[in-house]
Nucleic acid binder design. Structure first.
Lengths: 118, 118
DNA sequence: GTCTCATATGATCAACTGTTCATATGTTTA
DNA sequence: TAAACATATGAACAGTTGATCATATGAGAC
């Protein structure tokens, strides 16, 4: 029952609590995916990009102007956000218009802002 | 009006869009704070800690057993989560019981899980 | 075709992150 | 008091990250 629970070698572990929480805990994969999502949101440049796209779609050049970063830096970050399925884009001639790929982002920002500004 | 907008040196910028988004954009400070919050959620160990605490309060030793990490590693991460006001603790004898400091976390996880598992 | 423009990509590098190990702190028990 | 214990803290080190610069791609204009 508690073969490998006493990994700290002593008796400070509450077996009942550990077992209860273990059952509720999600898998390693899900934990890693969740962490990757939050990590993608965990950079000021990307926060600004996503928040800007909350207002409307923008091209890379506009984004760079709005947030005050180089176009290369923005492009690199957009790539990361694309792989996390946070943004998508449509092409119009030479210009790529980026927009949010997901309506969860707005709610994540809402909750985050509440936490930060309280 | 657009003195410093044409930072890319060319004419790909949509001034109206840039100005509209700029007005909505939050301050640098808020962006950094938000990014720090999400960064704190952006690590598998911390995700597991927080998710475990969603079920019930736990001591450091229990947390280490549940998520399969060293107590030192857990303690270091708890410190970070404390500075971000994500967890708090109460002392009972030698043991420190940690719990969530904030009900936003549950909703952040909900939204995050929806995004990840869709 | 060639040129220009908007964006993407690759390499590089300093800064940061998370773990481990060793040690310190503060609490209980003997 | 000393010893045992739960946890915190500091140093150190490999691994990762984000910006920059240089270069590549792909589309429209000529």
């Amino acid at each position: 029952m508690d073969q490998d629970l006493d990994r700290c070698g002593v008796n400070c572990i509450h077996d009942d609590a550990v077992n209860e929480v273990r059952q509720a805990l999600f898998s390693e994969d899900v934990a890693v995916s969740l962490a990757e999502l939050f990590k993608a949101l965990g950079d000021p440049t990307r926060v600004k990009i996503l928040f800007s796209l909350l207002t409307r779609e923008l091209c890379v050049c506009d984004l760079a102007a709005v947030i005050g970063a180089s176009e290369s830096a923005v492009s690199h970050q957009l790539r990361l956000l694309r792989t996390q399925k946070l943004v998508k884009f449509r092409r119009e001639g030479k210009i790529l218009y980026y927009s949010l790929d997901d309506d969860h982002i707005e709610r994540l920002f809402e909750q985050g802002l509440e936490h930060v500004t309280e």
